[in-house]
Design a protein around this nucleic acid. Structure first.
Length: 522
RNA sequence: GGCCCCAUCGUCUAAUGGUCAGGACGCUGCCCUUUCAAGGCGGAAAUACGAGUUCGAUUCUCGUUGGGGCCA
């Protein structure tokens, strides 16, 4: 390897990377991370990104999966410059290179049966040897091979691997060395029309002018094979960077087994792309400072391979949740409201209607039209409570109900009696009644009620400072449950009229209880 | 089985010969508080093991152990 040439090449050749997902499943976190690091590096260097779908496994590759991956990348903002290219459409290109190798005697047809191969492999392993091909068919001449093939003998194409030391530099790990004699002649194609992974990668990376191969650690042991093929074909060698893999809780490569969720599924659950990107970028990389919230432009600015971790990282969804909640908190309420709309719709709290090119939202229970401002208000009060967007609907359902259903016991705070609870609600009802609809704002409501708590508590003989005697009944009256946003916030969202209606309904329930003894007299 | 890669709190990681081994998530205590969150202030929690180099090792070297990956 000529170091000077290599340096010159680096200086003059613009960076080109590839995103090479395999459409054999829905887009998962591993795909996301490989695409992400390629994206970050390319953007940092002002380079180009080629998207290549490695679909040579026709059994398992599906268009559905490819579409899912494309959608996922777009949603995450990981855009590419060229492609998508599909390997299945490039068979003609591979064939040319394959023929070149066979013509040059660097590859040959092998007629060994799989039983034969397996037996040999078992034998070698039992002797503690590396399981490599015996070389039985290596001496078969091209003429002989052609004859055997025309007789209908099944064959594969093997690469004649040189027995030499193969060294390459890895941007993450430094120099890595393999012993070529332990690789053996390996299969590069089923036939001229069906090239296999290690071969297609080499051809594509060259054809697409890839300068930097950034991929998972699981490809380290493929690298020497690919280098050997490059050399036999006389192709230039790209730079390599092998990133640590992402692991499940059991420390093995993350997969469906671990309940690994697809990117689309995260999207559906209401994870923000920024959170997913921030989280994934920090799985195996960190800036070396204590800054942990990183947006794409900062990632692009600060990324470097020497800060990339060498060991694999366990996927920790609690941390993803935390990051997501950070990004949700930082969202502008207007934007957040728009993001939350679909969750209200799918929970049945909103219905969507198209009218004149505009989408109109209605409350299906009441038929009322629901404005975005209303959702925005809810969302702004819920913002600090959400880990993911999908939680918004369940946490805010009570705003959409026309009638609440709850046990009247729930209205009582601590040792308060029904009578005292009713007094509290009456008190608040009166205060609220004096507030003009135009002044119906959270802060005004709060300022009207809070100063009167002490007086109320003293009059009913409760601890002066315990706000719960007055505020808890209000909370329950407005939402019918234990957990909610603040009562004044709820009143703000509901508006004067509905707030009064819900308080009345609660008072009504309490009246029933307080008069209960009379029931026996009837 | 062969080869390759890796090893700091439970998890993600900082510290490249001298730090009380730092931060974050999670867990936990307190404060705030009408609930749940959020927020503020604390706490428990790690250098896998063994040699060597060195005045001194998380850090350098070797070995062991452990984990992972690829090869069918």
């Amino acid at each position: 390897m000529d170091e000077n040439n290599k340096e010159n090449q680096n200086r003059t050749t613009p960076v080109r990377v590839r995103m090479p997902p395999s459409p054999t499943g829905f887009m998962h976190v591993g795909t996301l991370r490989m695409a992400l690091f390629n994206y970050i590096f390319a953007k940092q260097k002002g380079g180009k990104i080629v998207l290549r779908l490695e679909d040579t496994d026709r059994q398992r590759s599906k268009k559905e999966y490819a579409d899912d991956i494309l959608d996922g990348l777009r949603w995450l903002g990981l855009n590419w410059d060229e492609g998508p290219f599909y390997q299945t459409q490039r068979a003609e290109i591979y064939k040319q290179y394959l023929e070149k190798l066979v013509d040059r005697g660097k590859a040959y047809h092998c007629f060994c049966s799989s039983e034969e191969l397996e037996a040999h492999r078992q034998y070698q392993m039992s002797r503690g040897e590396a399981p490599i091909y015996s070389g039985k068919c290596a001496a078969i001449s091209p003429e002989e091979a052609r004859e055997l093939i025309s007789c209908g003998r099944k064959s594969v194409i093997r690469f004649r691997a040189e027995s030499k030391k193969i060294k390459f530099n890895d941007l993450v790990r430094g120099e890595i060395e393999f012993d070529g004699s332990l690789i053996g002649d390996f299969v590069i194609a089923k036939d001229f029309e069906n090239a296999l992974y290690n071969f297609t990668v080499v051809v594509d990376d060259f054809e697409m002018g890839i300068t930097h191969v950034i991929r998972g650690e699981d490809h380290i042991s493929n690298t020497p094979k690919q280098i050997l093929i490059q050399e036999a074909l006389g192709l230039s060698r790209p730079e390599y960077a092998h990133l640590p893999i992402i692991m499940g809780a059991d420390r093995s490569k993350l997969s469906k087994r671990h309940g690994a969720v697809g990117v689309t599924e995260y999207r559906r659950q209401g994870y923000l792309p920024e959170a997913l990107i921030n989280f994934t970028a920090f799985l195996g990389w960190n800036p070396g400072t204590e800054k942990e919230i990183y947006l794409m432009p900062e990632l692009i600015r600060d990324f470097s391979f020497d800060k990339v971790q060498k060991g694999g990282a366990v996927f920790n969804s609690a941390r993803l949740d935390y990051l997501n909640s950070c990004y949700i908190k930082n969202c502008a309420p207007g934007d957040l409201a728009k993001l939350c709309l679909p969750y209200f719709v799918s929970a049945g709290y909103l219905s969507e209607e198209k009218s004149g090119g505009q989408t109109v939202y209605k409350n299906p229970r009441t038929g009322e039209r629901v404005e975005l401002e209303f959702i925005e208000k809810i969302v702004s009060y819920q913002q600090s409570r959400l880990k993911k967007l999908s939680e918004i609907a369940e946490a805010s359902g009570y705003f959409f109900l026309s009638e609440l259903s709850y046990e009247k016991e729930l209205l009582k705070w601590k040792d308060a009696s029904f009578a005292e609870t009713k007094l509290a609600l009456d008190k608040i009802k009166n205060i609220f009644a004096n507030i003009e609809a135009g002044d119906w704002k959270r802060q005004n409501l709060e300022e009207a009620v809070l100063p009167q708590i002490a007086g109320f508590n003293l009059s009913v003989g409760k601890p002066e400072k315990d706000r719960g005697y007055l505020l808890w009944p209000l909370r329950v009256a407005l939402c019918g449950q234990k957990m909610s946003i603040g009562p004044f916030e709820m009143a703000d969202v509901l508006g004067k009229e509905k707030t009064a209606k819900r308080i009345d309904a609660a008072v009504e329930m309490l009246n029933g209880s307080i008069c209960a003894p009379n029931l026996f007299n009837r």
